[in-house]
């Protein structure tokens, strides 16, 4: 009888641990994630403007490495960085938000620089939006 109680306790404990681990599952780390796609900024915007549904199918939630010229780069009041890549369009581009924790990957980058930014694609409004971005080294 005692044996069953012990087993029951262990089982409950295990379930609790599994539950806790699942609950605290970390966010995908873009810095170490392998990119699913590598594209140039104008081509990415073009794909979204010509067929948004198809582009959504292809890119949403995927890690995309986008190469392009920096249009604007500015930190917000919390220390996150907004970086816009030029996409040969007066109104639209590719907006990348770099979280505070990865802000140092964008250190020293200024408008006009050619960079590759890796992030999770969330879709298009006027611009294609990438979140959890990092600037890739060696570009």
């Amino acid at each position: 009888m005692k044996k069953y109680i012990v087993i029951a306790f262990i089982a409950v404990g295990l379930i609790a641990i599994v539950g806790l681990v699942l609950y605290n599952k970390p966010h995908r780390n873009t810095a170490t994630a392998k990119s699913d796609f590598a594209v140039e900024a104008p081509a990415l915007l073009q794909e979204f403007t010509s067929d948004e549904a198809a582009a959504n199918q292809k890119y949403l939630d995927k890690v995309v490495a986008v190469k392009g010229k920096v249009n604007a780069i500015a930190p917000d009041e919390e220390g996150n960085i907004n970086l816009t890549l030029d996409a040969n369009d007066a109104m639209a581009g590719v907006i990348c938000t770099i979280p505070k924790a990865d802000a140092e990957t964008a250190a020293g980058i200024k408008a006009g620089d050619e960079v590759t930014v890796k992030g999770v694609c969330t879709g298009v409004l006027m611009d294609v939006v990438l979140i959890r971005c990092v600037v890739e080294k060696g570009t």
Binding site: K25, P26, N82, T97, V120, T122, V129, I131
Partner: peptide, 29 residues
């Protein structure tokens, strides 16, 4: 942090658009 919005000061019109997937939570789950 990536909401696109326009305000027209003449007519008072406001437009907002936001991507649902760009909402970031503390926990991945």
């Amino acid at each position: 942090k990536t909401t696109t919005s326009v305000i027209d000061t003449k007519s008072g019109k406001m437009e907002f658009a936001v991507l649902m997937k760009a909402f970031q939570f503390e926990k991945a789950l």
